[in-house]
Measured scan of single mutants.
Amino acid sequence: GETKIIYHLDGQETPYLVKLPLPAERVTLADFKGVLQRPSYKFFFKSMDDDFGVVKEEISDDNAKLPCFNGRVVSWLVSA
């Protein structure tokens, strides 16, 4: 499998796309960081919350699996 991750960088209009050679349910924050090489950023991901619906959730645990929608991951990188 392959996972497409779209990421928005510090408010830039056009998002970036990276592809990881892993199925979406196995991709972790560490996998994503390894491709990006951007150490001083906070990582937020499109996520579903039972109370609020669609939210941007910050993930900082490198072992955390990334939230996935239709085989895609959507993220926002914010300068720390």
Rank of each mutant, 00 (worst) to 15 (best):
V27I: 12
L36M: 07
K42V: 01
E58W: 03
L29C: 09
S60H: 14
Q12F: 09
E13C: 09
N63E: 13
D62M: 07
L66K: 04
V18K: 05
I5S: 02
V18N: 08
A80N: 14
S40C: 13
P21I: 05
P15A: 10
E58F: 06
F44S: 07
V54I: 14
K19Q: 09
V73T: 08
K33G: 03
L20C: 04
L17F: 15
T28V: 05
Y41C: 09
L17H: 15
T28D: 08
E58P: 00
W76L: 01
P15W: 06
D61V: 03
D50F: 04
V74E: 14
P67D: 04
F32D: 03
P21Q: 09
Y16R: 14
V54Y: 11
V78C: 11
K56G: 04
D61E: 09
H8E: 00
H8M: 07
Y16W: 05
L66N: 01
L9W: 02
W76E: 01
Y41N: 02
E58R: 03
D50M: 08
V27Q: 01
D62A: 01
N70S: 05
D62H: 00
L77S: 01
F44V: 02
M48Q: 13
G53Q: 15
P23W: 01
P39M: 13
K19V: 15
S47R: 15
R26Y: 07
I59K: 03
E2A: 06
P23T: 01
T3N: 01
E13Q: 12
L77I: 08
L36S: 04
A24E: 07
P21T: 05
L36P: 09
W76R: 03
R38N: 15
P15H: 08
G1F: 14
P21Y: 03
I59E: 03
I6K: 01
K65R: 12
I59N: 02
K33F: 04
F52G: 15
V18M: 09
F45A: 06
G71F: 02
L77C: 09
Q12H: 14
Y16T: 10
L36V: 10
F32I: 07
S60L: 06
V55I: 14
R72S: 14
I5Q: 03
N70Y: 00
A80P: 14
L66E: 06
D61Y: 03
L66C: 00
G34N: 15
I5G: 04
G71C: 00
K65A: 10
E57A: 11
D50A: 10
T3C: 05
A80T: 14
S47H: 10
L17K: 08
G53A: 13
P67S: 04
N63R: 09
F52K: 15
V27N: 02
F45T: 05
H8F: 15
L66F: 07
P21S: 09
L9D: 06
D31T: 09
V55A: 10
E2H: 10
E25H: 12
Y41A: 07
K65C: 10
D51R: 15
A24V: 07
E57Y: 09
L20I: 13
Q37G: 13
T3R: 04
D49H: 14
N70E: 12
K46G: 09
P67A: 01
S47T: 15
A80M: 11
D62Q: 05
S79Q: 09
F52W: 09
L9A: 06
D62C: 00
D10I: 01
V54A: 13
L36A: 02
F44M: 01
V73R: 05
D51G: 12
V78L: 08
A80V: 11
N70G: 10
D61N: 08
F52H: 15
V73A: 06
Y41T: 06
L36G: 00
R26Q: 14
L20N: 03
D49L: 05
V18I: 12
S60R: 09
D49F: 06
V27M: 04
V78A: 01
T14H: 15
A64F: 02
S79A: 10
L36D: 08
G71Y: 04
E25V: 01
D61K: 00
D49Y: 09
W76S: 01
A30W: 06
T3W: 02
D49K: 14
Q37A: 11
F32T: 05
K19L: 10
E25A: 09
D10M: 01
V55K: 14
F43C: 08
I6Q: 09
E58Q: 06
M48E: 13
V54Q: 09
D31A: 11
P21C: 08
P21F: 05
D31Q: 04
F69K: 10
A80R: 10
G53M: 12
N63K: 10
D31F: 02
F52D: 15
R38Q: 12
G11D: 14
A64V: 06
T28R: 08
G71V: 01
Y16V: 11
Y16C: 13
V73N: 05
D61W: 03
F44H: 01
D51Y: 09
K56T: 14
H8G: 03
L66S: 02
G1K: 14
D31E: 10
L17I: 15
S40W: 11
G11P: 03
S60K: 13
E58Y: 01
H8K: 06
Q12I: 13
Q12Y: 12
I5M: 01
H8N: 04
Q12A: 11
T3V: 08
W76F: 06
R72H: 14
Q12K: 11
P67G: 04
N63L: 04
L29W: 02
F43I: 05
L77R: 01
L9E: 06
D62W: 00
V55Q: 14
E57F: 09
N70P: 04
R26A: 13
E13K: 13
S79L: 03
Y7D: 00
P23A: 08
G53Y: 15
V74R: 07
K56N: 03
D49W: 07
L20W: 07
Y41W: 08
G1H: 01
G53D: 14
Q12N: 15
A80F: 11
V27G: 03
D10E: 12
F69P: 00
T28A: 03
S47Q: 10
E13V: 07
W76V: 05
L29I: 03
V78Y: 13
F69M: 10
F32A: 04
D31Y: 03
K56Y: 15
L66M: 04
R72P: 00
K33W: 06
T3P: 06
A80H: 11
D62P: 05
T28Q: 01
P15V: 06
G53K: 15
L9R: 03
P67Q: 03
F44T: 03
A64R: 08
K42H: 12
D49I: 09
R72N: 13
P23G: 02
Y41G: 06
F43N: 05
F69V: 11
D49A: 13
F52M: 14
P21A: 10
L36C: 05
R38E: 14
T3I: 00
L29N: 01
S47N: 13
D50V: 10
